[in-house]
């Protein structure tokens, strides 16, 4: 029974990493405004969201498994506050940090119609921090670290995200490359030599 928890915790962690990779790649895909993998734009955005919610489910399983696992001896405190764990605190801290970041991203996304687009987007940029933190946590903390299959999985995920970011930064990313950038004209920005003397 205890072994089952341990294996479940490790497996769900890896599945969460794979799902987060899918989320990041589809998030970039959705940003491009192009259909992808035969899916229309709104479907890309829906799969992006649903994969993120599924990743949360697996992460919750991962954390609960470790909380109740006698080997891991994870304290509740460690789930929330990073870099204070007993076992490999730095690598475990990455996991905690990733969890905190993901919680912030998911909660603000679910509340984005209330928060407004500015606040939501600002928090959403943390995705680019969350994903590498999760990857490092898996590579450095997991009991499976050093196994060929975890390396293969991690490298595949890294390759997918790197390719997506490369595409994001390339000139062919925008669907309408000739479209003018929307930004407020500097002449209209607030006057600093204010008149209220």
């Amino acid at each position: 029974m205890t072994d089952a928890l341990w294996y479940f915790a490790r497996g769900s962690g890896v599945v969460a990493l794979v799902l987060l990779t899918v989320v990041v790649v589809l998030g970039i895909g959705a940003r491009s405004g192009r259909p992808a993998f035969g899916l229309p734009r709104f479907a890309v955005s829906l799969v992006h969201r649903n994969a993120a919610l599924l990743a949360v489910v697996f992460l919750v399983g991962h954390v609960i498994g470790l909380l109740f696992d006698p080997y891991a001896q994870l304290r509740f405190f460690d789930v929330v506050v990073p870099f204070v764990g007993n076992y490999r605190p730095v690598w475990q801290g990455f996991g905690t940090l990733g969890l905190d970041l993901l919680a912030a991203i998911v909660i603000t996304s679910l509340l984005r119609h209330r928060l407004g687009v500015r606040a939501w987007r600002a928090v959403h940029w943390l995705a680019y921090l969350c994903w590498p933190v999760a990857l490092l946590h898996g590579l450095g903390n997991g009991a499976d670290r050093g196994t060929w299959w975890l390396w293969a999985t991690s490298l595949t995920c890294a390759a997918a995200v790197t390719a997506a970011i490369g595409w994001r930064l390339s000139a062919t990313f925008d669907r309408f490359p000739a479209r003018a950038e929307r930004r407020v004209a500097p002449r209209l920005r607030p006057h600093l030599e204010e008149a209220s003397r």
Partner: peptide, 9 residues
């Protein structure tokens, strides 16, 4: 920003 979801939906 002309992302194009609404024009599909």
């Amino acid at each position: 920003d002309g992302r194009g979801l609404c024009t599909e939906l």
